[in-house]
Design a protein around this nucleic acid. Sequence first.
DNA 1: GCCAACGTTGGC
DNA 2: GCCAACGTTGGC
Length: 151
Amino acid sequence: MAHWLMKSEPEEFSIDDLAARGREPWTGVRNYQARNFMRDDMRVGDGVFFYHSNCAVPGIVGIARVASAAYPDPTQFDPQSDYFDPKSTPAAPRWQMVDVAFERKLPRTISLDELRRHAEALGDFPLLARGNRLSVLPVSDAQWKTILALA
DNA sequence: GCCAACGTTGGC
DNA sequence: GCCAACGTTGGC
């Protein structure tokens, strides 16, 4: 079973929003590397760290699960959507996504700052890499355990 | 709001 | 196929 970290801006969609909805299509990923992780490597049941980005205290706030195989993100075909991609067509969709299901909220936020303080234990963790901007990234078994133990 | 990092676009 | 310009991400 693989593990992942997925970023969301809490003003757009927070862990509380996911808790309220139960399950949510992960729309709006427009980065090929992130898409490829969802399309090629994610499996139903994989664990996901839900990360709040672009906010007062960025960090991991909860646990979710991959709840579907990848399928085309409908927002790419919708001219009204912020995520509309005029170069994409239903016959040849560019962007894929998965559904994500709420599992639990962590008792407290494991902040980016705290994660940095455990950089050594976390080893090669892409979230902590300089200039990292990926919104979907892999988490190793060891990293998953290390981070869960912090909560 | 600033700006560093970095991905994408498009002219050549 | 190079690379400058531009847009976006996301921490601060």
